[in-house]
């Protein structure tokens, strides 16, 4: 049994349909890159896995347990349950809690009763990956820079000790140097027999740091694009259409 099996997933917001009948299988211990242009459904796919889309249908199996299903409204109702099953999403725009301190924000990633007890140990682990957060623990998150906020967001997601770790655009809005260091830090995270999916626009940034790369185009997945995407914008000459 694979870790995550998505079959026939369609999702969208209101009348807008973003994902079209999508299949995807993620194995244990795999790091997957999800590459595509803006507005082609990368974020929607990640949000659909945690149940944050406007509506969705199709099956999402996590370790053989259904966490998807058909839902016409109620965005986010199922999310806490899915998160407690071991899926963590570091979303676009971070969604951290501006009024709480860095430490409280990190701790909030371990809100389930069991995780709460071992939050100290988990915090240590996060600080190993993002040492820069060590000095900021007492600070209010509202005062941090973009890169630090991103680290808090990623660290918070990691605090839940997820089996499936979803990262949405780790480089968004960051200076190139900082985004490189953030992605490098992601590479340091030990996923064990879990999996990590990184959605990213910049193929070069994640190349070599993931086991395979999937292309996303107009709500459909293109398996293993390799370097094919690089010709996407080259001038093409249709050379005869007869088959």
């Amino acid at each position: 049994m694979s870790l995550l099996e998505i079959k026939g997933l369609s999702a969208g917001y209101g009348p807008l349909r973003v994902l079209h009948d999508l299949d995807l299988t993620i194995e244990r211990g795999e790091r997957v890159g999800l590459v595509g242009l803006n507005g082609h459904g990368k974020s929607t796919l990640l949000q659909a896995i945690v149940g944050l889309t406007g509506w969705q249908s199709g099956s999402i199996l996590l370790d053989g347990v259904e966490i998807g299903g058909t839902r016409m409204h109620g965005s986010g109702r199922a999310t806490p349950k899915i998160v407690r099953r071991g899926v963590a999403l570091a979303p676009q725009g971070d969604a951290i809690f501006p009024g709480l301190t860095v430490q409280q924000n990190l701790d909030s990633g371990a809100f389930t009763a069991r995780a709460w007890r071992e939050r100290r140990r988990r915090r240590e682990r996060v600080l190993e990956i993002f040492p820069a957060l060590g000095q900021l623990l007492g600070q209010s998150v509202g005062t941090l820079s973009g890169g630090e906020r991103r680290m808090v967001s990623l660290g918070r997601a990691f605090m839940g000790d997820p089996r499936v770790f979803l990262v949405d655009e780790p480089s968004l809005g960051l200076a190139p140097k900082i985004s490189r260091s953030v992605v490098e830090a992601l590479g340091r995270i030990d996923i064990g027999d879990g999996a990590m999916i990184i959605a990213e626009q910049d193929l070069g940034l994640i190349q070599g740091r993931v086991d395979r790369t999937l292309g996303m185009h107009a709500g459909e997945l293109k398996q293993d694009i390799g370097d094919a995407l690089l010709v996407g914008h080259a001038q093409t000459h249709p050379h005869g259409t007869q088959g």
């Binding site: 944050l52 998160v83 963590a88 969604a95 809690f97 501006p98 709480l100 909030s108």
Partner: peptide, 25 residues
């Protein structure tokens, strides 16, 4: 308490709260 911090997290960012497993309901 943990529940208290959950409540404050929820009032600051409901979506973020859902993402860390806090059920709004």
């Amino acid at each position: 308490s943990r529940r208290g911090i959950q409540m404050r997290a929820m009032m600051q960012n409901p979506e973020g709260a859902a993402l860390v497993g806090v059920s709004v309901r």
